[in-house]
Design a protein around this nucleic acid. Structure first.
Length: 103
DNA sequence: GGTCTGACAGCGT
DNA sequence: CACGCTGCCAGAC
């Protein structure tokens, strides 16, 4: 049973255009619960666990979780590893310094 | 069905 | 300025 919040989260994250980033908090806000940023991470994490791993993000990425970062600019975590996340973000055209996104 | 955990954020010390 | 504690929501065990 998928809750509306979960659906919203996936939808919002899925709508993040390439090259753009969004914080967990922003996603939570757009999903309807500003304080549920914690649940957002949980949802994305579990969501990824259920699918095939190590897939090329360009081919497969129904929900681009890698475009969701922390509110303080730090990349944050990733189901496939922080390193992988940074790599992908770099491919999206972002500059990462010490696990942080350069604004 | 109750309890614990987590890819976080904010405030206090 | 750096570290630690608490709050909050949805999922997994």
């Amino acid at each position: 049973m998928i809750k509306i919040f979960t659906k919203k989260v996936l939808e919002v994250v899925g709508k993040i255009p390439r090259g753009k980033l969004m914080t967990y908090q922003e996603v939570a806000i757009k999903a309807g619960s500003p304080k549920a940023y914690r649940a957002v991470g949980s949802i994305l994490n579990r969501n990824y666990h259920g699918r095939e791993k190590q897939l090329p993000f360009e081919e497969f990425e129904p929900v681009p979780c890698h475009r969701v970062i922390r509110s303080n600019g730090i990349v944050g975590g990733y189901a496939l590893g922080q390193k992988e996340k940074e790599k992908i973000l770099a491919l999206e055209g972002h500059t990462i310094i010490n696990h942080k996104i350069r604004l």
